[in-house]
Design a binder for these strands. Structure first.
Lengths: 258, 258
DNA sequence: TTATATTAGTGTGACCCACACACAAATACA
DNA sequence: TGTATTTGTGTGTGGGTCACACTAATATAA
């Protein structure tokens, strides 16, 4: 009876936790690579050529292998992507749990998320496959959860708020990357504006028209914009925290319909 | 001299606005299909078999065409995806702009986003390509922007808050879809929990451990959970609105670093 | 009516991808 | 010195996007 049955676990979970060291690897030919090296090569390739160019043959080439050799280390591309995500996000940022208050902690966490996506822009493209379960991703999750429960929220409430911050960080990072990419492509914001403006007016889209006229619609998203939205979220969480009768720690979590 | 130069516009923009009707289409063989039919076929295929199965040959097959015939209507797969996204999101929901107050409007808008992703789960997978510029997507954007400016926010502030709500809706919808998909796959939450729990304790991830023990980590996301996070956002926006000196409408927008 | 320009759909092929499978090469142990 | 075991290779299958030459259909011009 095996301790863990791989069959019913999501792909990459076992490998991400670096468990078995491939059972008994005393016999047979020696591997020239390791899972870590392959993930590193994939990471470099993604950084260099983007997520769309990330393919098994290209990763193999970077290691001097044929395409299929990689499947000795990783059972599928999906599995590699899980490992890649964990590696790219890296360990949870410092200074989140130990921040001076929950607000500083949440800010640091969100900012770290956005920063991470700035370093590896393809992280926005990496599909999210269910709840995080790999070591680093769990580290990120636990960090923000500790901050929020420390502020008096229940675990379930904290999870909801964490999803909130996660969604915001990803969305901001994605939008920010988009404008960077578009400036590197052939699209000209001026041409877009010229194309859209009459249509916006015709449809009565006055707010969009105003933004477009002020070049604020496809504008770069600066750090001030990031913190603006973040402060809205934190204000909202603050309402929940301060409105709660002090001293009473709620444990049940989010009220659910029966 | 053409009015609009397609070259410097993002892919799909011109087609999405249904402009030229293909210049003068009086000459030559008559087309058996239309762009709309092709987008509809793609939409049906995505609904039926998921985003991963969406390919030009399969769409063509559904219409009784060869794969390449589609390129007579659409210049690339990317372009088709833009049209597909616009079609799948559909027109902006009713009852958002005319809601009784901004809070009701924002709630209706966000709920409509999530609902839309429930109808077409692959919408979560559809890559976001820069700011929305297709008719329906602009309609969604203008709807929430009107609600927020109507509440006293500047256009730029409204845009930031819209990004906030958008990110939240997408993240919630994605997480919700993930648990639905996982229940349809071979992964067993119980096996996952059994695998992770000792590791969570070993790493001192107490909050995650608590959530996992209560089956709250990979649990279904209910409507109550959606509104919980949404209320946090709205509370945060409310702080901004009510704190602003009443009567003074700010126009400049988000403060920016010089 | 016939010729011609124009457009729609087909066929083929180049080049990419993930992955299965048989095989060769390398290594440890009997 | 076998022999089992494991890694890397080679080949093949089935799929994908898309370019390009070609055929078929259709409206205009002669």
């Amino acid at each position: 009876m095996p301790l863990t049955d791989d069959a019913h676990l999501p792909p990459g979970l076992v490998l991400a936790w670096g468990l078995p060291a491939k059972s008994k690897n005393k016999l047979g030919r020696k591997p020239t690579q390791s899972v870590e090296q392959i993930v590193d090569a994939a990471l470099e390739l993604a950084d260099a050529e983007g997520f769309a160019a990330l393919s098994m043959p290209k990763i193999a080439q970077r290691l001097g292998l044929t395409a299929n050799a990689i499947y000795r280390y990783v059972s599928s591309r999906d599995e590699l992507l899980v490992l890649l995500g964990d590696a790219a996000w890296g360990p949870a940022p410092d200074g989140v749990v130990g921040a001076r208050d929950w607000r500083a902690g949440a800010t640091a966490w969100t900012q770290a998320m956005v920063d991470r996506c700035d370093i590896h822009p393809w992280l926005c493209d990496l599909p999210i496959r269910g709840a995080p379960m790999t070591p680093n991703l769990l580290g990120w999750a636990e960090a923000i959860l500790k901050v929020l429960t420390g502020a008096g929220l229940s675990p379930a409430e904290s999870l909801s708020c964490a999803l909130l911050l996660d969604g915001y960080a990803r969305r901001i990072a994605s939008a920010r990357r988009d404008v960077r990419d578009s400036s590197a492509s052939t699209v000209e914001p001026a041409a877009v504006a010229q194309f859209l403006e009459p249509r916006l007016h015709e449809l009565g889209y006055s707010v969009l028209a105003a933004l477009m006229a002020g070049d604020q619609y496809t504008d770069e998203i600066r750090d001030a914009d990031v913190t603006f939205g973040l402060d809205r979220i934190l204000d909202g969480i603050d309402v929940l925290i301060t409105q709660r009768p002090s001293g009473v720690r709620q444990v049940a979590g989010v009220p659910r319909s029966p």
